[in-house]
Design a binder for these strands. Structure first.
Lengths: 191, 191
DNA sequence: CGAGCAAAGCTACTGCCATTAGCTTTAAAG
DNA sequence: CTTTAAAGCTAATGGCAGTAGCTTTGCTCG
C-alpha cells in the first residue's frame, strides 16, 4: 500500500459528507475535515486537489447514490407504480440527507465526464420507467423534466424546511404523485 | 440627513444583489461590496449587522419582489389562465435572476417576522388564485405545495442549468403547466 | 454664526481558512 | 538493509469577517 496509510480520498470524502450532513454545505471546511481525520490541514492536499475538488467529489458521490436508490426503487415495478416508487425513493433520500439537495440541482460541467455520466445514469432510470408510456424521444425528455422538476422541487423544499404549515406533508406528496401519474398518462394519450 | 450620506442599507443591498446576480451567492463578500461602494470594508457595519444579515436582507428583497411579480401576473386572470400566468412569472423571474433561486427555497425563520410575512404574501397569491377551484383549506394547502414544488423545481433547475439536453425547455414547461392545471382540476373534482 | 452631537467613515488588529513550498518520516519493494 | 515515493508536517502568505477605538462631517439648536 502506502506510507502511514491512514487516509484515502474515499475516507476524506466520507468525513466531508458527514460534516455536510451534520451541519450544511457551507459549513464544510478543509480545516474541519483535517481535524476529524486527525491530520494537519495541508496534508489533505495529498488526497484532494482543493476544497472545490472535494465538493465535486461529494456531488459525484451523492448523484451516484441517488442513481442507485432510484434503480433499486424501480426494479420489479412498472408504469404508475414505478413512477410512484421513484418519487418516494427520491424524497426519502433527501429527507435522510437534507443538506445534499444542492448536489442534485447543479448542472454537470460539460468537461466533467465522470459527473456527467453519473447525472446521465439518473436520467436513464427515469427514461426506462417511462418506456411503457410509449412516448417518442422528445416527449420522453419533456416528461422526464417534469418528473424531475416536481419531485426534486418538492423534496428539496421539504428538506430545507420550506413547508412551514402543519398540514401533513406526506399527504401533499401523494397529491403531487397522483397529478404526475395522471398528467403523464394524459400526455401519452393526447400530446 | 446624516454625515457623508453616501450609503444606506438599501444601497448596500442593491450593490450586494448586483454581485449575486453577476456571479453567485457564494461569491458575495463584504469586501467586494465595500469596494463597489468605494468604502472601507468595516464601514459597511454601519448599515448591515453582518454578512449573514446582508444575506437575509437579500432574501427578503427577493421574496418581496417575487410576491409583487406574482400579484401582477395574477391580476385580471382566473382559473387555469391565472395558474399559467403565475407559473410563467415565477419562471421568468428566475430566468432573469438565476442566482436568486436559493432565496426562494429556504424556510423563513420562525423568529423573523418580516421575512415570514413576505413568504406568506407569496403563498397568499397562490391561495387567491386557487379560490375558484373550490378547495377546502387542507386541500388548498396541498394544492399550493404542489404548484410551488413543480414551478420552483422546474425554474430552479432551469436557472442553474440543470437541463442539459437540447430539447426546447419552454416546451417542457408548457407540458408541466398542462399537467398542473389538469391535476388541480381533477383534484377539485375527486379529492 | 458657532458649538456640539451623532452618524458615517477610517485605521489597526485578531482570528479563521485555503493554499503553497519545502522538509521529514515511513512503509513497501528490491 | 537500502532506496524511494507517498503521506505527513511546519512555516508562511493572502483573503476575508468581524471588533475596537479614533476622526470627520454635516445637521441642529442656541
Amino acid at each position: 500500500m502506502s506510507p502511514r496509510a491512514g487516509l484515502t480520498t474515499e475516507a476524506v470524502v466520507d468525513l466531508a459528507l458527514k460534516i455536510v450532513d451534520e451541519s450544511s454545505t457551507e459549513a464544510l471546511t478543509l480545516a474541519k475535515v483535517a481535524e476529524r481525520a486527525g491530520v494537519a490541514a495541508p496534508s489533505l492536499y495529498k488526497h484532494v486537489k482543493s476544497l472545490a475538488d472535494l465538493r465535486r467529489l461529494i456531488d459525484l458521490r451523492v448523484v451516484q447514490e441517488m442513481a442507485d436508490a432510484l434503480r433499486t426503487a424501480a426494479t420489479g415495478r412498472e408504469g404508475a407504480a414505478a413512477i410512484s416508487a421513484l418519487a418516494d425513493a427520491y424524497r426519502a433520500y433527501l429527507l435522510r440527507h437534507p443538506h445534499r439537495t444542492n448536489a442534485l440541482a447543479t448542472a454537470p460541467d460539460e468537461s466533467d465526464a465522470e459527473l456527467s455520466r453519473a447525472t446521465h445514469a439518473v436520467a436513464e432510470v427515469v427514461f426506462a420507467v417511462l418506456r411503457p408510456f410509449g412516448f417518442d424521444h422528445v416527449q420522453a425528455v419533456h416528461a422526464t423534466r417534469c418528473i424531475r422538476a416536481a419531485v426534486h422541487g418538492f423534496a428539496g423544499l421539504e428538506a430545507s424546511g420550506g413547508f412551514g404549515r402543519p398540514e401533513d406533508v406526506g399527504q401533499s406528496f401523494e397529491v403531487l404523485k397522483t397529478m404526475l401519474v395522471q398528467g403523464l398518462t394524459n400526455y401519452a394519450e393526447k400530446p
